[in-house]
Simulated scan of single mutants.
Amino acid sequence: MNIQQSFRNAGNTGTLYLVATPIGNLEDITYRAVRVLKEADWIAAEDTRQTRKLLSHLEISNRLVSYHEHNKEASGAELIRRMEAGESVALVSDAGLPAISDPGYDLVRAAVEHSIPVVPIPGANAALSALIISGLPTDKFVFVGFLPRDKKGMAKELSLWKDVQATVIFYESPHRIVKTLKEIREAWGNREVALVRELTKKYEEVVRGRLDDCLQHLDEVEPLGEYCIVVGAGEAEADDREAWWQELTLEDHVEFYIRQGEDRKQAIKRAAQDRGVPKREVYNQLL
C-alpha cells in the first residue's frame, strides 16, 4: 500500500510534478504551472526543442533534460536518482497533460514505486476539450488514444470498444485520419462523430455529423492539423439489454445499480429503462 499526502511531504525526497502545458494557445498555461516550472530543479521534456520555445516565451531558464520513449529507461533512472536525493522534477509533454499518450506513465510508476510524491499541475487537455465541445454525451466516456497502425491491430482494438455504452475518444494525425475513420465505420457502423482539430489555435474547427458525412467532408477538404475523434455510443440491442437482468427480481435489479454507485432514484430510472416501463411503475412496485 502506498499513501501519498501531497502537501504534507515530511520525507527527504523531491517531488515529481506533472505539469500541463498549452495545447495551442499559450494563454492556456496556469499561474501555478509557471511557478512550478520556475522552481523545479529539473524540467523533463518529451521534445526539448519544443519545450525550450515555451520556456523562452515564459522567460524560464531552468535546467532542461530529455525524457521520451527512446531514452525513458536511462533518463528515468537518473531522474529517480535525483528525486531520491531531494531534487524536484517537472515533467512536461509537447502539449497538454503529461502521461497521456506519452511515456510519462513509466516515470510516474517508477516514482510511486520509490515512494516519491507525484503531484498534478492541471491544465489544458485535448481529449477532454474535444469531448465537451463535441455535442455528444459527456456523462460516460472512454479515452483510447492512438489506435494501432496495422489493420489487424486496429480491428482488434476497435472490437474491444464496439459495445461500450459511452462516448469514445481517439487521437489521430492528419495523414491517417481518413483511413482510421473508414476502419471505425466498417467496425462500428455509421455512428455520430465529431472531428475536432487545431484546438485553441486560430483554425480550430469542429465537424459534427455521421461518419459518412465526415468522410465526405474530408474527401472535399484536405485534412490538416492534429485531430481528436469523438464517437458516440452505438445502440444496444434489445436482446443484449435483457440478457443480464432478466433473471433478477425488480428489487435485485434496482439494487444492482445501487451497488454500482447510483443513488436510489437513478437506480430506479435505469432499471425502468432496461425493462422498457415507466419509472413510476417501478417505484410503485417497490413500495
Score class of each variant (00 low, 15 high):
R280V: 15
D263V: 12
L224H: 14
E247T: 12
I43C: 13
D219H: 15
L55K: 09
I80P: 10
F146M: 05
D94A: 10
I100W: 01
T167I: 09
T21I: 07
A236G: 00
R52D: 07
G76S: 03
T21V: 10
P174I: 00
L286K: 07
R63G: 02
D28V: 06
E73P: 08
S115R: 15
L287Y: 12
P120L: 03
N9P: 01
E226P: 10
N190R: 02
T13M: 07
S56R: 15
Q216F: 14
A267T: 08
L55S: 09
V277S: 03
P174G: 03
G11L: 06
P98F: 01
A85S: 13
G123R: 06
T30H: 13
L248M: 12
T48N: 04
Y31D: 14
A111W: 00
K151L: 05
T51F: 06
A95D: 06
R259Q: 10
K182M: 03
P103L: 02
E247S: 15
L287P: 11
N2W: 12
C214Q: 04
V207M: 02
I268Q: 12
H57Q: 10
Y31S: 14
L37E: 13
E204C: 10
T48S: 05
D212M: 11
L160T: 00
S61Q: 11
R280S: 15
L16P: 03
A44Y: 01
D28P: 11
G86V: 01
R191V: 06
I80V: 15
D28R: 10
G261T: 08
E255P: 04
S115T: 12
K201P: 03
L158D: 02
V144G: 05
R176I: 00
D41K: 01
I29E: 06
K265E: 10
V118L: 13
A45I: 03
I268V: 15
C228K: 06
R8S: 15
A267M: 11
T180E: 10
P22E: 01
R109Y: 05
I184Y: 03
I60D: 11
K279F: 13
A267N: 13
E222I: 11
E113W: 01
E183Y: 15
K202I: 14
L224T: 12
N125T: 15
R264C: 03
L195W: 08
E198F: 02
A233E: 02
E242N: 14
E73I: 13
I177P: 04
F143Q: 05
E198W: 01
A44C: 05
I121R: 05
G76V: 02
E183T: 13
I268G: 07
V282M: 00
S75K: 11
R52W: 13
A130V: 09
A238T: 08
L58K: 12
H253N: 10
S6Q: 11
N12C: 07
P22M: 04
K152H: 09
A20K: 00
S56K: 15
H68M: 01
F146T: 04
L18D: 03
E205C: 12
H253T: 04
T48E: 10
V230T: 05
D274C: 07
R191A: 01
K201Y: 05
P174H: 04
N125H: 02
R264K: 12
L218E: 06
I3H: 11
E242G: 14
V178L: 08
R264Y: 08
K72E: 10
T21W: 03
I132W: 13
I80R: 07
V92K: 01
E192R: 15
A187R: 14
D102G: 09
G104R: 02
